[in-house]
Design a protein around this nucleic acid. Structure first.
Lengths: 109, 109
DNA sequence: TAATCATATAAGCATATGCTTATATTTTCA
DNA sequence: TGAAAATATAAGCATATGCTTATATGATTA
């Protein structure tokens, strides 16, 4: 892991929303509307965060019908580095579980 | 490691100069003038980076005569987290070795 | 095929960041 | 004690960042 690349990744992880998105995607794929619901922030804001993560290839997108799902890119050269960071972070599964309970997960995706 | 705290640390590590400073301090204490020499940047710039790292307690300072040495704060609650990041980074010992060879390390500290 | 839904992009704005120069503070030493 | 060295702080500036609203695009469905 080069200094330059490591600092770029850390900078991306320096935003709490993005860091949390990464932790969520680490355990399961997720579509944009779910993230919007979770973070209670505008849809463009989430799209912009995802774009930054995608621009350096940390996540990949995949259209599934009407929705676009984002997923961790396990082929990324820095994937191992990313993991060493993410494993230290608290599980975020409750966030998606909440959506399910509210029925939003079903409706939306 | 809480999300909030992790993202604060990542943000600090998101600057290449600061990340490198941390990696250097991880292997040995260092005074400000050495870092100025290494990074070829103004002295206030280095001081400001160090201040940010010190403000959240990641590093500590200690006056030794005319100089102020900075060192890793191993007592920091996030020290383990910091280590998981730093161990992935390339050794920066050559930077200080260069200073020694140029005789700057001696002169200054 | 037109309306709707999900997402992306553009534009604008307030705040944050990192650097520089200028200056203050503290210590050392002739 | 006064000059010099090491460091910190202040101020100013250009650029980056993250958010919002408005709008464009692409897929679905009535």
């Amino acid at each position: 892991m080069e200094m330059e690349k490591a600092s770029v990744i850390c900078k991306l992880f320096g935003d709490k929303t993005r860091l949390t998105i990464m932790k969520i995607l680490d355990s399961q794929d997720c579509c944009v509307c779910e993230l919007v619901e979770i973070f209670q922030v505008s849809q463009p804001s989430i799209s912009q965060h995802l774009r930054k993560l995608r621009d350096i290839g940390l996540v990949k997108e995949e259209r599934r019908g009407q929705w676009i799902f984002y997923a961790m890119n396990k082929q990324h050269e820095a994937y191992a580095f990313v993991q060493t960071i993410l494993v230290n972070l608290p599980d975020q599964d409750d966030k998606l579980k909440e959506l399910e309970e509210k029925g939003i997960r079903i409706t939306c995706c």
